[in-house]
Design a protein around this nucleic acid. Sequence first.
DNA 1: CACAACTAAGTTGTGCACAATTAAATGGCC
DNA 2: GGCCATTTAATTGTGCACAACTTAGTTGTG
Lengths: 160, 160
Amino acid sequence: MTASPADTEADWLRLDRQICFALHAASRAFNGVYRVVLKDLGLTYPQYLVMLVLWEQGDLPVKKLGEQLRLDSGTLSPLVKRLEAAGLVRRERSAEDERSVRVHLTEEGTRLRERALEVPRRIMRSTGFDLAEIADLRSRLDRLTGALDAAATAQARPGD
Amino acid sequence: MTASPADTEADWLRLDRQICFALHAASRAFNGVYRVVLKDLGLTYPQYLVMLVLWEQGDLPVKKLGEQLRLDSGTLSPLVKRLEAAGLVRRERSAEDERSVRVHLTEEGTRLRERALEVPRRIMRSTGFDLAEIADLRSRLDRLTGALDAAATAQARPGD
DNA sequence: CACAACTAAGTTGTGCACAATTAAATGGCC
DNA sequence: GGCCATTTAATTGTGCACAACTTAGTTGTG
């Protein structure tokens, strides 16, 4: 006698609880560690992500920032305004296309990079993972994200 | 001549951008797929997590729910109130300890479980991962969360 | 008993995520 | 040139996460 269908389904629910909780909790735990480390810099975790992109790629329009970080203007507009209020960036309407707003690093924003250089190692120590494990986890997560995004897109436009 | 320290540090920043973005994005992508699947049930992703715990373990005080999900009353109080407004749970002050509020499933909340049984498989399909990969990812994430929580605790209480 | 220490929920304030909408600018097309 | 679809930001509204604080109930100790 095998398990009844109802039991099997219940097992799925339990498994689902485990996996979605694992990812949810990992994300929040990561966020929490960054919160502590970034407090010295006066940045939140998403603000740090924006600064990382700007440090790496230079000034960008909000649109490009959003593509890099998969965030829309509803999230980025107020976030960038807070960075501007903190004196780390300036927002400037593009002259050639006045719809576009380019985000520039200020002197202070550029200087902050020096202090941010120590962040990654402090985080690495907190994870207890070595470089190979981090890289492996990253590739799995990227694959997962890609599959999930594709699935979401497929559901949004079933006929495509 | 090896790379200068500055270059090495810059590499760390780039790596950090990659890994923290990977986890952040994976979490949001997961959230997005659940959002679509759970819309039929009228639940958000965190509300679904609460319901999963209640379906599995029966009625619980808010305190216990918070321990299971690592969420505090600031998050849970309004969330549970919304579940109550939706008719899925009732909140009742405990008679023996009037500080405690026990969350009970209503008839409707219990019935919703039947409809939720299909959720996990729809999610699994979206991930494109098989059971073994899911289990493996989960164990890595749990280990990561454990290490991060431990590190956060150590930083909060350096002398312990 | 009285009072301090602790505990469980709830409240307030800040910031992020995202859907839906709006506003302004641009570009194509007749 | 006039009109319309598209694009870029910003705004509005809902919900979650979390820190800090408040309120009310409980427990331990003198």
